[in-house]
Simulated assay, not measured.
Amino acid sequence: MELTVNERIANNVEVMQKVRLKHIVKISKGKKSIEVNSSNLRYIQIGDLRNDNNLKYAEHSKSNVLCTKNDVLIAWDGANAGTIGYNLEGAVGSTLAKLVINDNYKIFPNFLGRFLQTKSKSLRDNCSGATIPHISKSELENIEIPLPSLLTQQKIAEILDTADQLRQYNKQLIEKYDALIQSLFMEMFGDPVRNEKGWETVQVESVASKEKHSIKAGPFGSSLKKEFYVQNGYKIYGQEQVIKDNMSFGNYYIDEKKYKELESCKVKNGDVLISLVGTYGKVSIIPEVFEKGIINPRLMKISPNKNIIRPDFLKFLLQSSHVEKQLKNHSRGGTMDIINVGIIRKIFIPLPPLKIQNLFAERVQMIEAQKQQAQEALAKSENLFQSLLQRAFKGELV
C-alpha cells in the first residue's frame, strides 16, 4: 500500500515534488541521416536504445538532429514505440525523439531515463495509428515525474543501474547459448552462402504446405481497427509476440464474427510468424498449446510442409545472417523499413535432408535446456529490477 504524505514524513521518506514532463523537457523528433561505413558521428536508431551490438555511423550534415549524453531518447514510431534510452550521443534517427532537459530544473538524466522506462508500456498502449503506431505527444508531455533532490536522484539511478547489470549479465549468457547454436549449425551445415556441403537450395515458397493460405500476410489495417477489439475471444498476434518470441504475451482480442471474417489469417500449431515492418525479419513459431487467433497487418505466416522441413529449422534459417542480408537488400521504406510476402517467398535457403534436420534439433534441445535455466535467472533478475523501479519513484527506495 502506498504511504500517505504524513506517513512518509514520519518514516523519514522523502516527499517528492511532481512536475509534468512538458515543463521540464523539450521534445525534438529525429531525422533520417545518410548512413556511412565510417565516421566519428554515431547514427542512433531503435536498436541502439537497448545495446551497442550494432554500431552505425552517419554522415555529418546540418540537417542531422544531434543528441548528447544529457538527453533522453524515446522510440517514437513502430512496434517498439515507448522504448527509452539515455547516455548516448550522435545523430538521432527518424523513428526516435530526443528529450532535452530544461536548464531551470535539476534533473539527473539517468533518473529521468529510468523513470520513463516505467511508462513505456502505458505510452505504447496509448499510441495512435493502426498500421504504424506513433507515440501520443500529449500523453508523453502530461506524464507527472517525481523530483527528489539531485543527490537522491543519483542514488536511485545507481541502485537501479546495479540491478540492471545483473539482468544484463543473464541476457548476455542467453546470447552465448544462441551463439553456440549458431556455431553448431555452421559445423553441421556449413555456410549457407558458399554451400560447401552441396545442399539443395530452394526458395521459401517451395517449403510451404500445399494448403490454401499457407503463406499469408495479416489483413489490411482497415479490417482490424482498435474499435473491433474485445476483452476476450480470438487473440490478435502481432510483432510484440514475435519480437519477444512469446505467444502468451499480449491481450488483444476480436470476437467470433470478426475472426470468421479474417479466417484466412488464422494461425495453427507449427506456423512460422515473421515481422514485416520496422523491426522486420523477427521470427517465432506457434507452439502446440496456443490461443486461437489471427495475425495482424505487421506479420505474415508460413505453414511449412513438415515432410520436408521442420518449423524450428525454418525459423533458424530465416533468422540466419544469410537470410538477413537478403532481406536488407530488398527492404524499402522512408520512415520505416518494410518487407513483404513477395520478398519472403523468393528468399533462398538450403534444404538438407529431414534426418539431418532432426539430428540438429536434438542437439539444439540440449543447449536449450541450459538456456532455459539462464532464462529463469533472467526472469528473477527482471522481476527484481521492475520491483526496485516501481519503489524508486514512490520514494520507498532511498
Rank of each mutant, 00 (worst) to 15 (best):
K258F: 08
D271I: 08
D312L: 05
H213I: 12
E240K: 08
L276Q: 11
K212V: 15
K306V: 10
Y237T: 05
G278L: 00
M300F: 02
L314W: 03
K212Y: 14
G238K: 07
E200K: 15
G293L: 04
A208M: 07
K257H: 13
F220I: 14
L273T: 01
E200P: 01
F228K: 13
K244S: 15
V230P: 06
K268Y: 02
K216T: 11
T279V: 08
F290R: 14
G233E: 02
Y177R: 02
F228V: 08
L318C: 08
S284C: 12
S321T: 14
I243E: 00
E256Y: 07
S183I: 10
P287F: 13
N195W: 00
H213Q: 12
Y280N: 03
R310C: 02
E200R: 10
I243A: 11
S275Y: 06
N246R: 11
Y237A: 03
D312P: 04
H322C: 09
Y259H: 11
P304W: 03
G221A: 15
S248C: 10
L262W: 06
L276Y: 03
K257C: 09
P311G: 09
E240M: 04
K225F: 07
D255G: 04
P311H: 07
Q241D: 04
I294R: 05
Y252F: 10
K244L: 12
G278Y: 03
